[in-house]
Amino acid sequence: VTLFVALYDYEARTEDDLSFHKGEKFQILNSSEGDWWEARSLTTGETGYIPSNYVAPV
């Protein structure tokens, strides 16, 4: 499993987005949709879409 870490804070803009804080780690569930990836936060357990340019591989 490839994990990603948040480089910046992000505040959700829609109900499908996932808010997160810098340093939070994610498991990517689906990265085939372009710039927005479906991810699960390893901190909160919540699932939603995150901007791929806000995260980097651990």
Rank of each mutant, 00 (worst) to 15 (best):
E24C: 05
E33H: 15
A39R: 00
D9V: 03
A6D: 00
D9Y: 04
L18V: 06
R13S: 14
T43P: 02
E33Q: 13
T2M: 13
S32E: 13
Y8L: 09
D35A: 10
A12D: 02
F26K: 00
V58W: 15
S32V: 11
E24I: 02
S31A: 12
R13C: 07
N53I: 10
Y49G: 04
N53L: 10
I28D: 00
H21Y: 13
R40P: 00
R40F: 13
N53W: 14
V5L: 06
K25H: 13
K25M: 13
H21Q: 13
E11K: 13
S31G: 09
R40A: 07
W37P: 01
D16S: 13
S31D: 14
N53S: 14
E24D: 15
W37R: 02
E46G: 09
Q27G: 03
A12P: 05
F4V: 11
S31M: 13
N30H: 09
G45P: 01
V5K: 04
V55Y: 01
L18F: 09
N30P: 05
A56T: 13
D16E: 15
Y8G: 06
F4T: 03
E15K: 15
A39G: 06
A12S: 15
F4P: 00
S52A: 13
Y49C: 06
L7V: 07
N30M: 08
W36T: 07
T47Y: 08
V58Q: 08
N53F: 08
L3E: 09
T44E: 02
H21V: 15
L42I: 11
V55T: 04
L29D: 05
L29W: 08
D9E: 07
K22V: 12
D17K: 14
E15H: 11
I50H: 00
T14L: 11
Y10S: 02
T44K: 04
H21C: 08
V58T: 08
T44I: 01
T14R: 14
E33W: 11
F26E: 00
P51H: 09
R40C: 07
G45Y: 09
D16M: 14
S19P: 06
Q27C: 08
I50E: 00
D17G: 14
Y10K: 03
R13E: 10
E46R: 14
L7S: 02
P51R: 08
A56P: 01
G34V: 12
D35H: 12
S41D: 04
A6V: 01
S19R: 04
P51S: 05
R40N: 05
S41C: 06
L3A: 07
F20H: 01
V5N: 03
E11Q: 11
A6I: 01
G48T: 01
H21E: 11
F20Y: 01
R13Y: 08
G45W: 08
Y8D: 07
I50F: 01
A6L: 01
G34Q: 14
S32A: 12
L3I: 14
L29Y: 07
L18M: 11
E46C: 06
W37L: 08
Q27D: 08
S19C: 04
K25S: 07
N30V: 08
S52G: 08
D9P: 07
T2S: 15
T2K: 11
H21N: 12
R40Y: 10
A6F: 01
V1E: 15
E11Y: 12
Y54P: 01
T43N: 10
R40H: 08
S19A: 07
E11T: 13
S19G: 08
W37E: 01
F26W: 01
F20A: 02
G23P: 00
D17V: 10
Y54E: 01
L18S: 01
E46Q: 15
D16L: 14
A6S: 05
T43H: 10
A12K: 10
W36E: 05
D9M: 04
V1A: 14
E11I: 15
V5Y: 13
W36D: 03
R40K: 14
K25A: 07
S41R: 13
A39P: 00
E11H: 12
V58F: 14
G45F: 07
D35M: 14
G34T: 12
D17C: 06
T44A: 03
W36R: 10
S52Q: 08
